[in-house]
Design a protein around this nucleic acid. Sequence first.
DNA 1: TTGTAAGCGTTATCAT
DNA 2: ATGATAACGCTTACAA
Lengths: 377, 377
Amino acid sequence: VTIRLNRTRTATPPFGTVLAREIPAVKALTSRKRTRRRRGATIYEVARHAGVSIATVSRVHRGRQSVAPGTRERVLAAAAALDYRASPLATSLVRGRHDAIGIVFPDLSGPYYSAVILGYEEAPASEGSSALILATHCREGQARRLVLDLADRVDGLVLMERTVEDGVVEELERQNLPIVLLARPPVGSADSVRVENRAVAVRLVAHLLEHGHRRIGFLGDPEASPDVFERWAGFVDAHREAGCRPWPSPIGCDHRETAGRLAALAALREEERPTALVCANDEVAIGALAAVRELGQSVPHDVVLTGWDDIPAARHVATPLTTVRQPMVELGRRAAQLLHERISDHRAEPRHVMLPAELVIRTSCGCGLAADKEVDR
Amino acid sequence: VTIRLNRTRTATPPFGTVLAREIPAVKALTSRKRTRRRRGATIYEVARHAGVSIATVSRVHRGRQSVAPGTRERVLAAAAALDYRASPLATSLVRGRHDAIGIVFPDLSGPYYSAVILGYEEAPASEGSSALILATHCREGQARRLVLDLADRVDGLVLMERTVEDGVVEELERQNLPIVLLARPPVGSADSVRVENRAVAVRLVAHLLEHGHRRIGFLGDPEASPDVFERWAGFVDAHREAGCRPWPSPIGCDHRETAGRLAALAALREEERPTALVCANDEVAIGALAAVRELGQSVPHDVVLTGWDDIPAARHVATPLTTVRQPMVELGRRAAQLLHERISDHRAEPRHVMLPAELVIRTSCGCGLAADKEVDR
DNA sequence: TTGTAAGCGTTATCAT
DNA sequence: ATGATAACGCTTACAA
């Protein structure tokens, strides 16, 4: 316990223009301040202007405690005159929360993600929080650091797909950071929001089986994402339920148009070629569509196929795609909602939301074909 | 100047476990802390653990000043053992900067914006800043508040299109906040990044004029965005340069497929109907395409048309769209770059970047049509 | 090289 | 109802 001089801050703001001339040490700081962004006045200036203490300014500003009407008016007037806005930084520091949440994407290309952002962004904006965004771009090494770093700037985090390994999620949980997993199976006690994949895959494949198809190929890579894995699982389920033997393994390809085209080309040149192709997403399906045409054949007459995601182009291709529509905006919205709940209600038990997907039947699956033209198995 | 007791913080961290029992006042605070997120250790704990002062910890952490090798090791070890990460909040407060930049979108739907985000997000991520994102959704009243609020949490702001009025931009400039305008004409001394519209519109329309068209309609609303306004201006220019009289006024419609379809339907039913349609974007063009088919006619035989943006669907529609490709990713990237420059180099003079757009000739403009089938004016 | 302590701009506690 | 001030967790000028 020592004794020191105390330039009472309440009485005199630390860097009054007058003081600057009097205290030498202040000089350097003052000049450093020049390069800093000029913000509105501080609470000290408002207090002085209104002839009250900073505590009172804070009280009227936050509107929680009672302040005499007259005083309140004076403070309000001073604040307005000086264009006072409380520093979010200082407020956050003392209150121990950021009033900000973050979302981490694996990538940002494609129409897919912007819809999620759209849904996600609304909640924080309307409640005075801000939304931080990060894309890891599969730069594996970086990802951990970037996410951990982001974690220190927010009150909660939404992690989409395989942005970071399970270990990192657990690490964040240990830090007590509310986490919502998006399109990713639950880890630890984090919340999760997903779109149903397996059940709708079953319906989709059942539909194809009803059309009479028995040699159905799956175009895509189940290992690439949890979503595709579930789609493949549903694909297998549907065959089992119908008592058929599924095509032994997926026809692997990454999930872009070119890869889809190439994979389809190869598959359709086989002797025992599939009569139907279930594609992991619409891009692959569009590539496959091109492949069929290159072979001088047509969809749905010679082969039928289906996509996933219902991207805008799905409706516009030569043979409109039968596909699965996912509620992407809702996905983002629910994630933000769950996160908000966890943060403000201090909810402890994890919640898991599964959103329904919608089967969109168009013509690429063979619907609308004359019955007699349907493939005979 | 008063005298007060000073519990020297350097000697004793404010909330030592021991102190908590001794000083009654601390009790309440301690229990409040329980609800706060447990972060890694503070600089005080690391200092104690390493047997040095917090100044030294800060020094090795920031790596600027010299520290004795032995000391450094001890501090590093302590930091690692306690999982120390400096609070970005506290650091920002004292350093007077946020290490964060923000971007404001008018909207977030469409593939258009996610590409911008993609380009934009890279810069802050790689330099340890974070990216805040906001969409105003045309909620005019809110927009001002939301943006001003965001402004207090960042070191600089990118404003896309008509997110806020010029007045707000000026207000932000007065606050000394670095601003980059995206796809929006310069205001004050803010930087700007735009994609060339007028010149490429001239080339596009000249192309149509060369095909022999003399009655060319413009589908879209020049008032909706600066971009479309420029496209219309180029449309007029091209006619002037060719010595033709342009269609007197735009055929107004908002920029979605349905509106495009309806507007085209109406225009093509007129007696003196256009033989070519320049559409404000691809969605409008796709709508127009549908309209032509509904009239039992075809593109490019009976009417030709062009789009703008080169969205994925543009390649996949029945008659692939002649359109204009804009470097959206680059747009976002350059905006972030410019902002970074302004922030770290304290650049004062505004810079204006104009990115080139690329004319993508496909078949909807009539290219590839047998010459004798081309429209005779 | 290292420690001391002031300062960043708030909120909240305790007195008055 | 209001004021004084500790505390939030850091950085840095100055002293030692």
